[in-house]
Every structure is written in C-alpha cells, then in structure tokens.
C-alpha cells in the first residue's frame, strides 16, 4: 500500500498578486486561509483570545512585509508555520507543550465509547474529546493532517521536525485515537470490526 505523495503545488497566483500589493488578493488570501488557521491555532493553544491577537498580528505583518516575502511551496503550510512560531513564543502555549511530554496519551480512563446510536453531534463531540485527550503534539498532528489536509512532509515542516519524527507522531496519534475510541465505535475513526 505505498502511494506517492503529491508533488507540491505550483506557486500560487493569488500569493504573487498579494505580494505586489493587490488588496483584493490579500482579502482573498485572508478569506481562504484565516478560518483554518484559527481552527489550528485554537487546537494548539486552546485560547481563543490569544488566537485572535496572533492571527491579526500575522496578517498585518505579512501585509506590511509582503514585498520581502518568498513564494512558499504551500501557502497554507507557510502560514501555519508562521502562526505556530508566533504561538510558541507565548509562554502559556510552550507550557502546554512541556506538560504533554512524554508523548503518552492519558490512558487512566480509557473508556470505550459506543457510538452506534448516538447522533452526529454527540459523535463529533466525542471524537473531539478523544482528540483533546491526546498529547499536545499528537493533537496538532491530527489537525494538520485530517483538518488542514497537509502531507506528512508538510506537517513535518510546520512543526519543525524531520520527516521520520512526523511519521512516527502520526502513527502514534492514529493508533491512540483508535484505541481510545474503542472497538465498539463502529461508525467512527475506528471502523474496523473485529473478526
């Protein structure tokens, strides 16, 4: 089961227009990327107020320094990385990450969640809570991977780790999430039916 990763996308024409000072392109860039960046920021920091400030800083900064910016292979990856860098400069966020070491999930209460009869809303909340219980870096990997749709390589770049570390992190995150949600959670991330 080995399929090649997609090749990185070609330079984004919207990004080029924005770099030349096109405000419309900047507004589009914002519309396209700000919401997922907010989702990621809240996943990483858990602090909506902080994310508001940092997102604003980030976009004001890239607008002001647009002429000096490079053309990233992936605009989303570039922005995620910049956002992460800003978040990690906040002591409170660093502390969250320090607490999450070593990377073991909190397995003290590995309740098995049977979801077969639950509604979509409850199901979603349960998945969210399961992700919340993962170590911080694994939460981040889940978001980058299954929400932002980044490749393992792009996720590695955002998190400033090498490819192998990112692959290992992803492996652990997927396994632990599957374990936490339990074999009874048929319709869920664990769609595997024993037998």
């Amino acid at each position: 089961m080995s399929l090649q990763d997609n090749t990185p996308p070609a330079p984004d024409p919207g990004w080029e227009a924005f770099r030349k000072g096109d405000r419309d392109a900047f507004a589009q860039l914002y519309d396209e990327h700000a919401p997922p960046l907010i989702v990621y920021g809240i996943r990483v920091s858990g602090d909506e107020g902080l994310v508001r400030d940092v997102i604003q800083d980030l976009f004001v900064e890239i607008w002001r320094s647009r002429a000096n910016l490079q053309s990233p292979g992936s605009v989303r990856g570039y922005l995620l990385k910049a956002l992460r860098y800003k978040l990690m400069r906040k002591a409170a966020v660093r502390l969250l990450y320090a607490d999450s070491l070593p990377e073991q999930a909190d397995t003290t209460n590995p309740e098995s969640i049977i979801l077969e009869h639950e509604s979509e809303i409850i199901r979603r909340q349960l998945i969210r809570r399961a992700i919340d219980r993962l170590p911080k870096r694994q939460q981040e990997m889940i978001n980058l991977r299954f929400y932002q749709g980044l490749s393992t390589e792009e996720a590695a770049s955002v998190m400033s780790v090498n490819y192998q570390s990112a692959a290992n992190l992803l492996h652990r995150a997927v396994s632990q999430l599957r374990e936490m949600l339990g074999p009874g959670a048929l319709a869920l991330i664990v769609i595997y039916r024993a037998g």
Binding site: Y30, D31, A34, P35, P36, I38, V39, I42, R43, E48, V51, R52, I55, R123, R124, Q125, I127, R128, I131, I142, N143, F146, Y147, L177, A187, L188, I189
Partner: peptide, 17 residues
Amino acid sequence: VLAVHAAESDIPADMLA
C-alpha cells in the same frame, strides 16, 4: 477521515475570521 475533520471544524472560525 471526514469524522475527524468534522470534529476539528467544531469552531465558529468564519465568524472569528
């Protein structure tokens, strides 16, 4: 994948943006 994606989207990001 879609279930995890939906769970991660559970934030009013458009409004915040």
